[in-house]
Design a protein around this nucleic acid. Structure first.
Length: 905
RNA sequence: GGGUGGUUAGCUCAGCUGGUUAGAGCGCACGGUUCACAUCCGUGAGGUCGUAGGUUCAAAUCCUAUACUACCCACCA
């Protein structure tokens, strides 16, 4: 065995073993008909991204699943890659251009894209490098990018198929316009944030009358684009006004008063100004009533030439103030009320979005959503935790068409070609410029649509485009569908839902590995399970954000505590689907745990060095030669742990798994078992016994390392490699994950071990409370009643001595308490500790009295239950019997305690 | 306006289909240089399980209502 240093130092081990794994190609997956596949696709991080705590949690969970399944013998593929992130990336590059005083228009489209690609080559891989530091076992050979040629072709293919199927259409609609990014964004990319605003009541003079129509609005500046005033047709107050006209203040326009059911008579004045070009509701009212649409903004939401000249070319919010002022001076502002409303903001840059009328491309979603909802409702595809099903269902049943065009340059250009002849409106979808003549006008001249597609129009294909779809190939056949998707619930609509739709729509054609067609839903859903991760917050429960400066840099944490510590801590803290309050100091938990395991390894190693010719026998099985309670107990605990842990992982209770393992390793293995075997390792046993004991201890240790490996890959590899002679290329990564063996699970032995621990604890308590110096050796007397107990007690003797620093253990049957001794009762066995000269009689009296009070409390409450007629008659017999046994045991304990109290002096 | 989660020790959280004395980690107090580990070991203090009802022999656990808190969805000007 290689020598281990006193504490575990992560840095070196992390670098060493990560490159070892890569050199030996252990992350690579190959279609293998002899093994079952297990596939996870990474949620592709943006190329502009840097590693956050959210990524740490997300990717550690994936790595745990992947390493675990790999060790279980699956052909395991973790597909990595990055996302081109249209708006984000274009913004970053434009910003750096701006530093040189240039805009993208100065460069032109082709040159600008060149610059973006260059940027991507230089910086786009940052997050991937950071992920490697975390220990992620992705198949890097297969790394993909959403704008790779193959993936781009898949995007075009999908567009064309949907187009030809009539599921894609183009039209002038009110969309969400970001005046900063100068692009449309989809409904889901708008965050509605409540804010305090105002409700302005404006008087519109009615033509041929001295009366006014009074409208309430939150956006007075849009009145410049009003083309009607609207009331509810059933509103008695205003019926007489329908059909009349009002003079639109600040303009020279006259607009009609119309009636529409949309108007709520109870809100505001019951009269609404209608601005079809700048409000989605007004847009639909306008459609119904054939109203003109007057667009008053340019692409930056400055007022355009349709506004009165004095307002033109100025910002919308500046004009809001000015319009209000102007109305006021005209005496047309009735009042202002405080009003909170939800304002839509761009999810990328937080700019207030403008409902804007423009030509965009849309995907009809209803036909895609229906089957995608079904597979989730019928359980073909499972959500963890499953409460997200409701959220998903609500969105799917109320789904709206997806605006997929973006007025950007960085992205997949829409594969639509327009005939350039005057008056010919023909268009066609194809990957390259059409070669044939325009079927309508016969010309050859085409130009491609200027817009690009929403970034999600490539990510929704990720689970199969990364495997080479649309071309049939053996990897796609073998690894698709994937098994588990691990992602945050914040992108359930953006990404998860759309992937389900795309998977179902586009993968039926791919044959199964045996060549048979995919007919069942389970073979075309993109994944069978979705694990929705927690959201990591800071210690005060606030969201991590750049502006708050409360997001720790995971790389700093790795440098300080180690990657394993970070991984383990985050998992330990993150229950399925619950938010996590995180701070760096919490990583002490993981660091200390890593160190604990490390030192257990050192302990084994030092003992191995003590025994001449000792060599650890690597073996997949274990025997019970020269075994005693400690061995049988720990073997039972080990196998119980394996089974509980596997069960937890099967159900995605990953943090349960970490707790189960932590408790086993720290408490069962280190605190009790290792302490217990010291008796034999340090005693006069012959070497053959010592060897057997140590071999077993190492075997169990190795099993624990394997259980722990998915969570803490580096430290486990480092120790595992040093446990025995390993050949080059061997790794704990590809060892066999332990399987619980029922043969070793023995509840009686576990109870036995627990009884022994209780005895030890009772003695330690006495020592502690009576302040017997730890260095002082004591003698103990165990007073028992039945023979069976005697046999047990004899077996424990050596353990009791070591664990409680006891010189002599005397077993007595039905004896009296010696003078000047402390006492305790455990499971009807009395412990007497003669403490001549050491005992503080008063303290001991108080201690026993407290114990008596406690047990009497238990006795009384149990007695109360049993004297309750209805409890005895209605509760199940086992429960009643159990209470009776308890009562009896409490009674005996009480008697003994009281007797001991009397004879204290 | 609808929906979802949380509310248990000073802090962060476990407590599954109701049934021993409601647990852990951190923190705190006290004591420890025993040959793996002070990133450690031992002992201890600390909780009427948000509130009010209900079901039951039995409720932290199930039901109803309610408060507080966080988040999501929604076209109310």
């Amino acid at each position: 065995m290689a020598q281990l240093s006193k504490t575990y130092s992560p840095k070196e081990a992390e670098e060493k073993w990560y490159s070892y794994w890569e050199i030996h190609n252990l992350f690579h997956a190959k279609a293998n008909p002899d093994k079952k596949p297990y596939t996870i696709v990474i949620p592709p991080p943006n190329i502009t991204g840097i590693l956050t705590m959210g990524h740490v949690l997300n990717n550690t969970i994936q790595d745990v699943l992947v390493r675990w399944k790999r060790m279980q013998g699956y052909e395991t593929l973790w597909m990595p890659g990055t996302d081109h992130a249209g708006i984000a990336t274009q913004n970053v590059v434009e910003k750096s251009l701006l530093k040189e005083g240039k805009t993208r228009h100065d460069l032109g489209r082709a040159k600008f894209l060149e610059v973006v690609w260059k940027w991507k080559e230089q910086y786009g891989n940052t997050i991937i490098k950071q992920l490697k530091k975390l220990g992620t076992s992705c198949d890097w050979e297969r790394e993909r990018f959403t704008m790779d040629e193959e993936l781009s072709e898949a995007v075009q293919e999908v567009f064309i198929r949907l187009f030809n199927k009539g599921l894609i259409y183009r039209g002038k609609y009110i969309i969400n316009w970001c005046p900063k990014d100068h692009t449309a964004i989809s409904d889901d990319e708008v965050n509605h944030i409540e804010q305090n605003g105002h409700l302005w009541f404006i008087k519109y003079p009615i033509v041929d009358s001295t009366d006014y129509a009074i409208v309430a609005t939150t956006r007075p500046e849009t009145m410049l684009g009003d083309t009607a005033v609207c009331v509810n047709p059933n509103d008695e107050r205003y019926k007489h006004l329908i059909g009349k006209n009002v003079k639109l203040p600040l303009t020279d326009r006259v607009i009609p008063i119309i009636a529409d059911d949309f108007v709520d008579p109870l809100f505001g004045t019951g009269m609404v100004k209608v601005t079809p070009a700048h409000d989605p509701n007004d847009y639909w009212i306008g459609q119904r009533h054939n109203l003109p649409q007057i667009n008053i903004f340019d692409i930056s939401a400055n007022l355009n030439e349709n506004a009165p000249i004095r307002y033109q070319k100025r910002d919308r919010f500046e004009i809001r103030r000015e319009v209000v002022k102007d109305l006021e001076s005209l005496g047309l502002l009735l009042k202002i009320e405080a009003h909170t409303n939800a304002v839509g903001r761009c999810y990328r840059c937080d700019t207030i979005i403008e409902p804007y009328l423009s030509d965009q491309w849309f995907v009809k979603m209803k036909p895609l959503a229906e089957p995608a909802l079904k597979v989730v409702l019928d359980g073909t595809l499972k959500f963890h935790p499953d409460r997200w099903v409701k959220v998903y269902e609500h969105w799917m049943t109320n789904i709206r068409d997806w605006c997929i065009s973006r007025q950007l340059w960085w992205g997949h250009r829409i594969p639509v070609w327009y005939c350039t002849c005057d008056g010919c409106d023909h268009l066609s979808a194809s990957k390259t410029e059409p070669k044939e003549k325009c079927p309508k006008c016969g010309c050859h001249q085409y130009r491609q649509d200027e817009d690009v597609l929403d970034t999600w129009a490539s990510s929704w294909l990720w689970p199969f485009s990364t495997l080479g779809w649309y071309k049939d190939n053996s990897d796609l056949r073998y690894f698709y569908p994937t098994d588990t998707l691990v992602t945050g619930p914040d992108i359930i609509f953006f990404w998860v839902a759309r992937m389900v739709m795309a998977g179902i729509e586009f993968t039926k054609e791919i044959p199964l590995p045996d060549g048979s067609p995919r007919t069942e839903n389970k073979d075309i859903v993109p994944f069978r399970n979705v694990y929705f991760t927690s959201i990591i917050r800071d210690a005060q429960g606030r969201k991590m954000s750049k502006s708050l400066g409360n997001s720790p840099d995971p790389l700093d944490v790795i440098a300080e505590y180690g990657a394993d510590a970070l991984r383990f801590t985050v998992l330990y803290l993150a229950p399925l689907g619950q938010d996590v309050l995180y701070s760096n100091e919490k990583c002490e938990l993981g660091r200390n745990f890593a160190n604990k395991i490390w030192n257990a390894g050192r302990f084994l190693q030092m003992n191995a060095n003590q025994i001449i010719d000792f060599k650890f026998q690597i073996s997949n099985s274990i025997n019970d030669a020269y075994s005693d309670l400690a061995d049988r107990w720990i073997l039972s605990r080990l196998n119980t742990t394996i089974s509980e842990m596997t069960n937890a992982l099967d159900n995605f209770y990953i943090n349960d798994a970490t707790k189960i393992l932590y408790d086993f390793i720290w408490h069962d293995y280190c605190d009790w078992y290792l302490e217990m075997i010291k008796t034999r390792l340090y005693g006069d046993e012959p070497d053959v016994v010592k060897k057997a004991v140590l071999n077993r201890a190492i075997y169990i240790y190795e099993q624990a390392l394997m259980l722990l490996h998915p969570f803490m890959p580096f430290v486990t590899e480092e120790i595992w490699q040093s446990l025995a002679e390993r050949t080059e290329g061997e790794s704990i990564m590809i060892s066999q994950f332990p399987v619980a063996n029922e043969k070793w699970i023995d509840k009686e032995t576990e109870a036995d071990g627990l009884f022994m621990q209780n005895l030890v604890n009772a003695i330690r308590t006495i020592r502690g409370e009576l302040e017997v110096p730890p260095s002082k050796e004591i003698n103990i007397i165990l007073n028992f009643h039945d023979t069976e107990r005697e046999q047990h007690l004899q077996k424990y003797e050596s353990y009791l001595k070591r664990l409680t620093r006891t010189k002599m253990v005397t077993l007595l049957r039905d004896s009296q308490k010696p003078r000047h001794s402390a006492s305790a009762v455990v499971d009807n066995v009395e412990i007497f500790i003669p403490l001549e000269g050491l005992i503080n009689l008063k303290a001991e009296c108080e201690r026993i009295q407290r114990e008596i009070d406690r047990v009497r409390g238990l006795y009384t409450s149990t007695e109360k239950k049993l004297t309750n007629e209805s409890f005895v008659s209605k509760a199940p017999k086992e429960v009643v019997d159990h209470e009776r046994n308890k009562l009896e045991s409490f009674k005996i304990t009480l008697q003994k305690l009281e007797k001991n109290l009397e004879s204290i002096s």
